[in-house]
């Protein structure tokens, strides 16, 4: 029972993170990108962002979710879609015991 509550809380956390990240990405897409952003879309492969934006995303997730992304997580793949970003945030929050 307790495990289920914890698991649900984790789901809520990831969903909340996904919503924030989606908002941030939408805000930062250029005026020339008039597209709907899907949570599974690879934002770099689809050309919505260049990899220049990756570091800004790293700073964004670290400051918004108060986490430190360990060096072995710093690969483009983990930052490539709303889903992957939210999962990574959830995982790092969980491993920090929150």
């Amino acid at each position: 029972m307790r495990d289920e509550v914890v698991a649900n809380m984790a789901d809520v956390m990831v969903a909340d993170a996904a919503a924030k990240i989606r908002g941030y990405l939408r805000e930062n897409m250029t005026a020339f990108q008039d597209v709907e952003l899907d949570d599974e879309d690879n934002i770099f492969e689809r050309g919505y962002f260049t990899s220049l934006f990756a570091m800004q995303l790293l700073h964004y997730v670290e400051s918004t979710f108060d986490i430190e992304v360990p060096d072995d997580y710093i690969i483009l793949q983990n930052f490539s879609s709303v889903r992957r970003l939210a999962d990574m945030v959830g995982e790092l929050k969980a491993s920090a015991g929150e």
């Binding site: 220049l52 934006f53 990756a54 570091m55 072995d72 997580y73 690969i75």
Partner: peptide, 18 residues
Amino acid sequence: LIAGVGAGFGFVVNTALL
């Protein structure tokens, strides 16, 4: 290797240039 394989441009070069 700094950060992960594939992190060379998006992360390392951008951090260095920042």
